[in-house]
């Protein structure tokens, strides 16, 4: 009997020693926090705000788990779950960082494409104006539209500035606005040209 009690006591002491050695997973905490910081630095709050927030919340939950363990009697602490959670946070944050880079690249591509399309639309409007018959009947309209095209051209440096600052999402909206307005001007010029053509046809 005594042997059994002694055996249990040894087992208990061994268990307490093993668990009593549990330390805060500071390395894992640091790694998870750094991974979130890196994702944010890569622009995740702008490109993947929901995912970034979720990663932040998961980190808070892991830190709560650490707090829970910290509050326990030293010999009963177990940071296993916290470590697991922190590993998940780190992996999630790294995924967010990778996805952010992909999203940013896609936004950059779209912004540059938008810039190209806006420039092309302005060039088209300018070209149409240059080809427009400069008779008395169209002089006023042409002059007004030249002013319109100047206004559109003035917006291009602003668009370039946005792209330079890597503000791609804003740049996409700006480029869309410029293109739509430029298309509008081109449409007006084309309509005016059609009108002139029709008039000429009628007189013949």
């Amino acid at each position: 009997m005594k042997g059994l009690i002694r055996c249990c006591a040894y087992g208990l002491v061994l268990m307490l020693i093993v668990t009593g050695c549990a330390k805060q997973p500071t390395q894992e905490m640091g790694d998870a926090q750094k991974a979130i910081g890196d994702a944010k630095a890569a622009g995740s709050e702008k490109y993947l705000p929901e995912d970034t927030k979720k990663a932040g919340d998961s980190l808070s939950a892991a830190l709560d788990e650490i707090k829970t363990q910290d509050s326990k009697f030293a010999l009963l602490r177990n940071y296993g779950k916290a470590k697991e959670m922190l590993a998940q946070v780190k992996a999630e944050a790294e995924r967010v960082q990778t996805d952010t880079a992909a999203k940013k690249e896609e936004a950059k591509k779209n912004a540059l494409a938008g810039q190209g399309a806006a420039k092309a639309a302005i060039d088209e409007a300018r070209g149409l104006l240059e080809r427009a018959p400069k008779g008395k009947g169209t002089k006023a309209d042409i002059e007004a539209m030249k002013g319109d095209v100047k206004g559109l051209e003035d917006s291009l440096p602003e668009l370039q500035q946005m792209i330079g600052k890597e503000d791609y999402l804003m740049a996409i909206d700006k480029a869309t606005a410029i293109k739509e307005k430029a298309d509008g001007v081109s449409g007006q010029i084309k309509a005016a040209l059609e009108k002139v053509k029709a008039k000429k046809g009628g007189r013949k």
């Binding site: 006023a140 309209d141 539209m145 030249k146 002013g147 095209v149 206004g151 909206d173 606005a177 307005k181």
Partner: peptide
């Protein structure tokens, strides 16, 4: 501006206004 043939001075700023309002809509 069209009525008074004022294309030189004001159409440029008017176009910028139109474009900025368009962006605001987005």
């Amino acid at each position: 501006s069209q009525t008074i043939n004022e294309g030189r001075l004001v159409r440029r700023s008017l176009m910028k206004a139109g474009m900025t309002v368009h962006e605001a809509g987005l």
